[in-house]
Design a binder for these strands. Structure first.
Ligand SMILES: [Mn+2]
Ligand SMILES: [Mn+2]
Ligand SMILES: [Mn+2]
Ligand SMILES: [Mn+2]
Lengths: 219, 219
DNA sequence: CCAATAATTTAGACTAGCCTAAATTGTGCC
DNA sequence: GGCACAATTTAGGCTAGTCTAAATTATTGG
């Protein structure tokens, strides 16, 4: 239906609207490793196809049709990531590139069967929500670890804006998505945290904690 | 490394060399649904990259490098087909199109992990051999059903040159790849065959039988 | 209020991959 | 041998997607 480049532009716009509320030409170009002029060309094209609303000099937004297409791509991307981690045993920080390719494989039955095969997962290995077939996102109340309550059990469900360095740090400390732990202490002096779990624990700086999203984990 | 179009050309040439011993411009164009002039362009390009030997007016062959690339594509195609049938539950005649896309996803670790996940299958759902990482094909002694011995157990392992109509016919008779049966009778008059298996059986015309490859199936 | 600056768009060019139409080549038959 | 015909290549043209450089627009600090 749409070319790979068209799809990547739509997804980039959607991501920027989510993250920043606005999608400017320069930022789209940066995400896609292209030049602003190339993005302008594509914005015109996508506007012509009714996927994008282009306000020249003021960025782009998605039409309903564009948003639907974006959510379908996000769905495919996150389902493939889930497959790569859960079934093929990739680490959660190794899967993005490949999913970036797989998301463009075009087949409704494929993606629906994959979804079923994975047991209709609601969140991907990075803790990001997977839209359903109709583009509805599962909801979840998350708390930044920096604001989580000391003494209670929590579960790490997502890493916000995770650089590779951050992911490596978490890996080294044995802290992965899905890990349940008790927030044992928060130092008043520097906001650093102490986590404990069955087989271990770790200390985290406030800078790291600011990137971590948790849910309360009773039981 | 190579574009989708380059890869599809290489695979088409390889397939023609296998099937017919020669790969002429017109036949390549026919396989890829393009025109002969487009194929000529691509042959020059691939010759320039050292993948193809182009003898103008006399067709194309593959260099060692080209053959290796072709086998890698065949490997990916057949592993994906196996995944689609064995894990996602597609029927064997529904998977070709999607595998045609998936084979172009570029990631060594992906394909090696997929191979392991599937248990290093040696044949795809159509009974075709899956090259290993080094391009070696598993071997198997097959017998055309038309020449198989009456009264013995055989197993259907491949359908040669199967049109959609043929596949549908087999489907309707309950005859799938992997099916073990006893060749109960062969009519002298028209060469038609009678097959029986635990839960049923069927009759086949000589024309159909000529497309079916079997292996002896003791036990 | 306007001049400097940053963002954006426009203009013009290039490549990959495809096409049609015309020219060329190989082949096999009289 | 040469003619007819099919296959192939060449010539020329188109679109999608990218780029650089130039022109344009929005913004903002003095
Ligand atoms: Mn992508
Ligand atoms: Mn993800
Ligand atoms: Mn293909
Ligand atoms: Mn196959």
């Amino acid at each position: 239906m749409f070319s790979r480049s068209e799809e990547d532009h739509i997804k980039a716009i959607h991501g920027l609207l989510q993250d920043a509320g606005q999608a400017f030409t320069k930022d789209i170009a940066e995400r896609l490793n292209t030049r602003a002029s190339s993005v302008t060309d594509m914005l015109k094209k996508l506007a012509g196809k009714g996927l994008v609303k282009h306000a020249p000099y003021h960025g782009a937004t998605l039409t309903l049709k564009g948003r639907r297409q974006a959510l379908s791509l996000v769905r495919k991307h996150r389902l493939w990531e889930t497959f790569l981690v859960q079934r093929l045993g990739f680490a959660w920080d190794e899967v993005h590139e490949v999913a970036e390719q797989l998301e463009h494989v075009s087949s409704e039955p494929l993606i629906e069967r994959l979804d079923a095969y994975l047991g209709h997962p609601r969140f991907d290995p990075h803790g990001d929500p997977i839209p359903d077939r109709d583009g509805r996102m599962p909801e979840r109340v998350t708390v930044h670890l920096s604001e989580a309550q000391v003494g209670l059990r929590h579960r790490l469900v997502a890493v916000k804006d995770g650089s590779d360095a951050l992911l490596r740090l978490l890996d080294a400390k044995g802290l992965a998505i899905g890990r349940a732990f008790i927030l044992a202490a928060r130092q008043e002096f520097d906001g650093s945290l102490q986590l404990t779990w069955r087989s271990g624990g770790c200390d985290l700086s406030a800078q790291v904690a600011a990137h971590l999203l948790t849910v309360p984990d009773p039981a």
